[in-house]
Design a protein around this nucleic acid. Structure first.
Lengths: 182, 182
DNA sequence: CCCGTCACTGGCCGATCGGTCAGCTAAGGT
DNA sequence: ACCTTAGCTGACCGATCGGCCAGTGACGGG
């Protein structure tokens, strides 16, 4: 054995996460991952049944976290819902920077996979909460701006300490939505 | 001859623009475009030297427009620069919805092509203008949020009249940046 | 000491990719 | 009537993709 099994699996997942986030799921070949992880392509398929399984395992923790956030938002309305949605979304975007980047990069190729997070549904319910359950066109536009601003800015490569980023993302999004920033 | 040459070329470009925007450049094969345009794959490569040439022609008008915007912004500073950047960016994002979507979808695969718009440079100069030439971390974060919010919300599929979208994108972005919305 | 299992690999497969090429057809000039 | 040319295509090519399989070598239990 070259190295312990758990190390090999972890190395593969680590390489895959970085490469998928950098070049997209479709833009990263199994050979790319194998080279980066320092093993053969066949070794990947020994530890994982196929390429999709690697992605599924990387994104596994994301779905439940967003579902939990939606559960917390479900009972809220108006400004209360919007504020909770902002802080929750900022938190998840920072915790799952790379994973969210992967999801948004290949949305169209990744929806229609039942085991993966339902991106369309999540974005719709999040924008609804961010808009304070309002159907007004302006509220919907601002909700989309706030959501995309939060998610993609945190997925970007701003070289800032995490707490600074968290605070400014929150303030920026609240202002986008037309809410007081305390 | 099946149809006039100009019609065929235009049909190919039309199909390619829609498909590239929907599934990405790498996610769209020449066969996909040919099927959508109602011709053979070989016919594509009769009208265009290769796949990249189709993309280059689709994105040709975008680069100069952004360069012109940057030229107008170059002499401005502070809040004046930020306001001009917002209105200019909203305008271009709405005029080139699909093209911008293509550019952002496959950024990593599309940079390093000299004949294509320099996405990194454009985004950097735009965020600088949006932040009012400020180097403060908060200003840079908000500039990124405003830019990504504008570009990707206009590239999305909100079913709203264009002038409503233009007005709300502008107001939302100005508020993100902490500016009065008149 | 041997044998089974685990970790891993080289080599191969069919499908699909972007791209080439010889050749067909119809229109237009002479 | 003949020839040229533009428009278009089917067939084919090498490269690369995801995935499969028959091994091979090291380790641990009996």
């Amino acid at each position: 054995m070259a190295r312990s099994a758990t190390t090999m699996r972890a190395d593969i997942l680590d390489s895959a996460l970085r490469l998928f986030a950098a070049h997209g799921f479709r833009g990263t070949s199994l050979q790319d991952i194998a080279t980066d992880a320092g093993c053969s392509k066949a070794s990947l398929l020994y530890h994982f049944t196929n390429k999709d399984a690697i992605l599924t395992e990387l994104l596994a923790p994301v779905g439940p976290e967003f579902a939990a956030l939606e559960g917390r938002l479900a009972g809220l309305d108006g400004e209360e819902a919007a504020r909770a949605a902002v802080t929750g979304l900022v938190d998840l975007s920072l915790r799952f920077r790379l994973q969210v980047k992967i999801l948004l990069q290949d949305v169209d190729a990744l929806i229609c996979r039942p085991e993966l997070p339902d991106v369309d549904g999540i974005t719709e319910r999040l924008t609804t909460a961010l808009s304070g359950r309002s159907a007004a066109p302006q509220a919907r536009v601002w909700a989309w701006m706030a959501m995309l601003g939060i998610i993609l800015t945190s997925a970007g490569e701003l070289a800032l300490p995490e707490e600074t980023l968290r605070a400014e993302l929150t303030r920026g999004a609240l202002r986008t939505l037309g809410l007081q920033t305390d």
